[in-house]
Simulated scan of single mutants.
Amino acid sequence: MKKTLEHIINKIEPISLDEMDAVSLMKRTDTKFVIHEKDLTLLLENIQNQYKILEINENRVLTYSSLYFDTPSKKFYNDHHNKKVNRAKVRMRKYVESNLCFLEIKQKDGKGKTKKTRITIDDFETELSNNSLEFIQNTMQSKLDLEPIIWNAFNRITLVNKTMKERLTIDLNLSFKIKDSLKNYHNLVIIELKQERFNRNSPVVQQLKLKHINPYKLSKYCIGMISIYDDLKYNRFKQKLIKINKLIA
């Protein structure tokens, strides 16, 4: 990490995981932006007084590891690619510094709202346990043949607005892998604003607007899938991949 970025991060007022529960926003509107890592320090410097930063065991840049599941026909990926309004993702996510692991289901409805449902698990399961299968079936109201489809890892900075009900996640050092296939996205930063409804008065939205950076719909899962699998239909995401590669070149 660049020293200047670390310096800015350490200046932001901390917030604990327990304190952050008030802004959990399990049902929310997500708005994403993409920037080059070189622009992150200045952005954080400009908004640092409006936010607190999540700190766990004295760590402010946290490590996340995820394992996504899909059907053999890659239903979840294809639903997203084919613009299906009601769609879902199933993943296991480990929050490394806090040593917590969850089985999570993210469901998007026709109004653009995202609902996240999760249960605690001991660790990653490449073979889904009966408890996990039951949770997935009850949550999704259907029985699916699921298998591990892609691993994902990244570092995350989480900010909580001091006055507005919003959280901000900043993901960097993104990588994907399955078996011997690996793809890294160096220099790419994905910013995700989580609110009850999109509010343009958010400090980060205002700062990005000054740089002519607009909201950009992007799925880390889908970008990872087309980076690892060469047999997927991806015409809907082709321009997104071109934009990302151009941004981080």
Rank of each mutant, 00 (worst) to 15 (best):
K3N: 07
E6P: 07
E6A: 03
H7W: 10
I8S: 04
P14N: 14
P14I: 02
P14Q: 08
V23R: 13
L25V: 01
K27C: 08
T31C: 15
T31S: 15
T31F: 11
K32A: 03
F33A: 01
E37V: 15
D39F: 08
L44E: 01
L44N: 01
E45V: 07
N46D: 13
I47N: 01
I47T: 00
I47M: 01
Q48K: 12
N49H: 11
K52P: 03
I56R: 12
E58I: 05
V61C: 10
V61I: 12
L62S: 12
T63F: 11
S65Q: 02
D70S: 10
T71K: 11
P72K: 14
K74G: 02
K75N: 04
K75D: 02
Y77P: 12
Y77H: 06
Y77N: 08
D79V: 11
N86G: 03
A88K: 02
A88I: 00
K89N: 00
K94A: 03
K94F: 03
N99P: 05
L100E: 14
L100A: 10
C101Q: 06
L103E: 01
L103D: 00
K106D: 00
Q107T: 06
K108Y: 05
D109R: 03
D109V: 05
G110L: 03
G112V: 04
K113H: 03
K116I: 06
D122I: 12
D122F: 15
D123L: 10
T126P: 09
S129R: 13
L133G: 09
Q137Y: 05
M140H: 12
Q141R: 13
S142Q: 14
K143G: 09
K143I: 11
F154Y: 15
T158V: 13
T158E: 07
M164P: 02
E166S: 15
I170Y: 08
I178V: 14
S181W: 08
L188T: 06
L188E: 06
V189T: 06
E192N: 12
F198Q: 00
N199E: 04
Q207K: 09
H212C: 09
H212K: 15
K220Q: 00
K220V: 00
G224K: 06
I226K: 03
I226L: 02
S227D: 02
D231H: 09
Y234M: 10
Y234A: 08
N235Y: 10
N235R: 11
R236M: 08
K238I: 12
K238V: 05
K243T: 15
I244H: 01
N245Q: 15
K246Q: 15
I248L: 01
I248V: 14
